[in-house]
Design a binder for these strands. Structure first.
Ligand SMILES: NC(=O)c1ccc[n+]([C@@H]2O[C@H](COP(=O)([O-])OP(=O)(O)OC[C@H]3O[C@@H](n4cnc5c(N)ncnc54)[C@H](O)[C@@H]3O)[C@@H](O)[C@H]2O)c1
Ligand SMILES: NC(=O)c1ccc[n+]([C@@H]2O[C@H](COP(=O)([O-])OP(=O)(O)OC[C@H]3O[C@@H](n4cnc5c(N)ncnc54)[C@H](O)[C@@H]3O)[C@@H](O)[C@H]2O)c1
Lengths: 214, 214
DNA sequence: TATAGATTGTTAAAAATTTCACGTAACACA
DNA sequence: TGTGTTACGTGAAATTTTTAACAATCTATA
């Protein structure tokens, strides 16, 4: 097939294939079938084959997919076969948790700058990074070659943080504050909101209760 | 319309309507149209009307939706018109960030227990909660009347944490560890994975680059 | 080299979701 | 009370996404 518009859901699933393939790879598995992969991430095998078909032909008929090759192929397709420089705006509870977490680095997202507006936080060191004043974002982002911004400020400050980041020339933003932000069209934005998941669980429990399943 | 099977995507959107309605309510807005709400959360107005139609008729033709009434109606529909007792397993970086964050409480998710297996952490106090040994989960969960569990352990420990939670009688789980967990059918599970969003942004930036938009 | 068995890539069908379009109801105001 | 305007609720159309089915093709083995 190749190209055409790629469903957002496909991208999400590809990301989970990566997670699973990384694990398989660590466990020394050499080959995996679409059925095996499907079981591991709870989707339909055809779905997987179709998702992959958007990007190319990575499997071997009668055999399956070579774990390493597929991993490489998907990463390339997603554009994560390289290191992305990331800056974080808002070094509070959540910001710190993210900075300290090694998974970002392991997946190729290098935190190169941390910014906050709180004078008590500026100058502090978190996970080996000095916290800078957000006023210096624009000046430093160029220097640090920042491409992606992560917003972990309170919701009311998210738009301002986004403005700083856009001025600083980032090309994409992941926003953890539960508000929509306004940015130019050609900036890629993703919203993360945990609360949604709690709502979902609460809803499903209520549903199960009303169906008498519990 | 009312009832029939409700799309997962609808639930997600309802959650974001709640966020926006809370803000509107705080700002003193009394009425909002499907179009206004649609603009605020970046979807189609019909979509909103259809989403709401699954649960009932909450609007007034020619007028719109009364913010407070709609908020109440959606919360009731989602089953978040009450307080849910939540326990957290794994009090590391992320667990702490969640415990300290007030939004959970504000949205009706009351953290009533925090559990960890690290002897250095047991007995510590985080956000007014004592950290207990995860061995005591089952014993205490009944006492605390825990209904939802949040897993914030390392991936390798997530299944064990899930087992504890299920034995302890929780009815739903939000899993922040990037692995699937195996639980009985009637337990509602939601997965949270930030990395997906970073992947998405990276992909979209790559796409924009290749389309010459940047 | 032929054959059996396995699993992909792809097309077609089915299902789900989103958008459109319009009848209908509520309000404001003359 | 009548009329114009607005915006909901909903059935039908359009679109998107998922699933099923199968021909193509690879490996192994005799
Ligand atoms: N902590 C969580 O688990 C959690 C969960 C869901 C959502 N969130 C969201 O993530 C965001 C951060 O949460 P948190 O718990 O870390 O809050 P926090 O208050 O601990 O941290 C916010 C940080 O942002 C800084 N800040 C404020 N305005 C700024 C600006 N203009 N420029 C730079 N820095 C600025 C503050 O100084 C502070 O350090 C919030 O929007 C919150 O709703 C957090
Ligand atoms: N920190 C982040 O921003 C972030 C981002 C994405 C995903 N995650 C995921 O969230 C999880 C937690 O991340 P973290 O950064 O907080 O890790 P962490 O190592 O800081 O914390 C993990 C905690 O779990 C505890 N634990 C281990 N096994 C346990 C068990 N069986 N029962 C109870 N407690 C147990 C550990 O003692 C530790 O306190 C990980 O799975 C991680 O991949 C975290």
């Amino acid at each position: 097939m190749k190209s055409s518009r790629i469903p957002r859901a496909t991208i999400q699933r590809l990301a989970s294939y990566v997670q699973i393939l990384e694990t398989l790879s660590q466990e020394g598995e050499k080959v995996i079938s679409s059925e095996g992969l499907a079981r591991a991430c709870g989707v339909n095998p055809s779905q997987i084959r179709k998702d992959l078909a958007y990007f190319g032909e990575f499997g071997v008929r009668g055999v399956g997919y070579y774990v390493q090759d597929l991993l490489t192929a998907i990463k390339q397709s997603l554009g994560i076969d390289r290191v992305w420089n990331v800056a974080m705006v808002g070094v509070g509870n959540l910001g710190r948790a993210l900075l300290r977490h090694k998974i970002l680095r392991k997946r190729g997202f290098m935190l190169v700058g941390a910014f906050d507006c709180d004078p008590f936080k500026i100058g502090e060191e978190v996970a080996g990074l000095e916290v800078y004043s957000s006023k210096r974002l624009q000046e430093m982002a160029g220097e640090l070659n920042v491409e992606i911004g992560i917003i972990t400020t309170p919701p009311k400050r998210a738009q301002r943080a986004a403005n700083y980041l856009v001025e600083a020339g980032v090309k994409g933003i992941v926003n953890f504050a539960p508000v929509r932000i306004d940015v130019p069209e050609n900036i890629a934005v993703e919203y993360v909101d945990f609360i949604h998941h709690l709502f979902s669980v609460a809803f499903n429990i209520s549903l199960n209760l009303s169906k008498g399943l519990i």
